[in-house]
Design a protein around this nucleic acid. Structure first.
Lengths: 210, 210, 210, 210
DNA sequence: GATGAATGAGGTTTCATTCAT
DNA sequence: AATGAATGAAACCTCATTCAT
């Protein structure tokens, strides 16, 4: 956790430091990020950096925490709180939509998140073992979806949860990537949902007689 | 590209170097990998390293190339060559199965690949802009799938291609990750295909009136 | 010398600073002591530190002076003042006893003293060249001891003075050290005096023929 | 322990490094010694320093070991080996004489030793807990001295051992100090022995009737 | 070609002291 | 006078790459 000195900083300066840190951390791995570069970009002396933070990791953990808070803020809290009132696909849509919005608005935060995700050792140091992962969340709503009759009862919930998580990441990546796709609106989320609902098989032919 | 001296090395020694490089590169990012560590693990003097390679990146590019070759080798070449003879889902199954086999057998290569994937700058330097990406390949077979009537004609081919790519990565990640899922056989591939085909919606209810 | 601001401080606060300084200086060399640590321990802001003292050395010199004063306070002043009334061994006993008491009661001050003693450059800067050293004092009472017939006239006064000084330090060290010896009372001083008086040779045998 | 690279160095260069290290370590505490200064004095780049040594402490421990070896080399080995053939005061004389010679020839090594002695934490890290201390050695020969009838049977062996150790240090210090005493030969050792044997009391008077 | 030492730029962190309020 | 943030000069150590044999 940053020291008090950091939180006592004028907003503008504090933001500059955060901004500089995001910029630097988004560029590569934690280890590759240079304190010097952050200080320089933020326009503060290196010495000051260590007045504000215990060390590089201290700042990093703080940024990760900011990211998590920002992510949560993007989700429609009402929906999460009153989960039981909504259908499975409604919930899924909200989750994906928020991931989409987040990635769209904060591509660099996505980059940082992906980078941390790739460094398992650091990941555990930052999050501990206990975090409720996205997969856990998906598994919960899948169970509900099956119980409500929204979902095919033959699916393997654990596996589908993993897959939905992967697609969640994929969404972020698609948006974050150089984006040859045109993704100006949330249409992409609906496309994805449709696929998840119905798959991609041509059913017209099969349904023939119907 | 490694120098001739490298290729003139006795096989056993060359393999030791490759093995050491894979080990080191799999541990972290490109920048974090240490030439010294590679030389040490391979049991060669650092000096020799620079007799064999221009620099660290030279070796890295070579390893990436080996990985690509290994990936391709995992695919049923006959199927790719005679693509037009097979149905979409047959092709997709083979692609995913090979990705699965690859991740299962070469987790470290997957780690290296993911790490490179995360470093866009390096990625472009290594692959250039021109590479036929997985997305391109998927788009090709999707087009064929639609033409053949295997796929729902309403889908957005570019988008689905991206998604299938993402799922391909996801598969690797699932296998590579700490694997709380039980993935001893290819069942996982079939599960995934089924989802891609049909989605996860409970159709039983809807079919009712039919 | 500390600034007036320091001496105008409320007693309690001034004592806290002194206490903190002693604690920190006792832990290592002068250079190793950290102003920040002292300020923190004393519960004052670093800024205030520099309101009270010119710099770190200023405080250090002051502490050294306090130590000297404390040392002197331990000695029976009457004895020193009326030196000529006492025998050599009486005086010596008092000097050693006071050193013993001092070390026993102020182990940290001893540590600081030893540390300074080890840094000749600093020592001279702090004490200058002129200080009346312990050796000088011993030399004075030795001269008197010889004159009075208390001491063997064959001894080399300068050398013995040095030795007695060394033993004085040794006493401090013995007490200050982890103390595997049992030193609950002043018995140790008497033991030392006895040795200084008579040496350790077995005289019984030799005296035989006498 | 230094790396092989250090021991493979040409003698002249290795000596330069050792010399530089001694110079720097003699100047202050371990922590105060600067790697940069050592490298500079030795005329090697800092990088090379770390080719030779693990870190600063590695070099330090090595120097301490050299000092120990040098100290031992100064002692008449035959005497130590055949301890039982010699009388107590003969042995003591040899020990002190060797300490004297050592201090005379290697004042800086003495300084380093004293400095280490003052940093208990470092001392234990360097020597471990097991070292046979000088005090142990003294205690051994004292026991023998008492058994042989050389020493006054009333003395407290542990305490005298401590004292003789202190005097041993004192000798080093006297020589090492700015040396206002004239100590060109070993006379000083004999003076000290005489004191230890007989003390400083004027026995002539007391012996009166004899 | 093989070897392994030499090099020095660059990274993180510490801390005495000054400055601004 | 009190405060506590600002500053920047070191310090230690790492490592890709070059050099000399």
């Amino acid at each position: 956790m940053p020291k008090d000195t950091f939180f006592n900083l004028p907003d503008e300066k504090r933001q500059r430091v955060i901004e500089a840190a995001i910029e630097e951390f988004a560029k590569g791995s934690f280890r590759e990020a240079r304190v010097t570069a952050i200080a320089e970009k933020a326009g503060i002396p290196v010495g000051s950096f260590y007045q504000y933070f215990e060390d590089k990791k201290d700042l990093y953990k703080y940024i990760i925490q900011l990211i998590a808070e920002e992510k949560i803020a993007q989700i429609n809290q009402d929906m999460i709180a009153n989960m039981q009132r909504y259908g499975f696909f409604q919930l899924l849509r909200e989750v994906y939509a928020s991931a989409f919005r987040f990635a769209k608005e904060h591509p660099r935060l996505v980059a940082i998140g992906l980078s941390l995700w790739n460094d398992k050792a650091l990941y555990h140091e930052v999050y501990g073992d206990y975090v409720e992962t996205s997969a856990d969340f998906f598994q919960k709503i899948i169970a509900k979806g099956v119980a409500d009759g929204d979902l095919d009862p033959d699916i393997d919930p654990a596996f589908v949860a993993r897959l939905l998580t992967a697609l969640n990441y994929a969404l972020a990546e698609i948006v974050y990537g150089d984006g040859k796709l045109d993704l100006d609106d949330l249409e992409v989320v609906d496309k994805m949902l449709k696929l998840i609902e119905n798959g991609i098989k041509n059913r017209a032919a099969a349904r023939g007689g119907c």
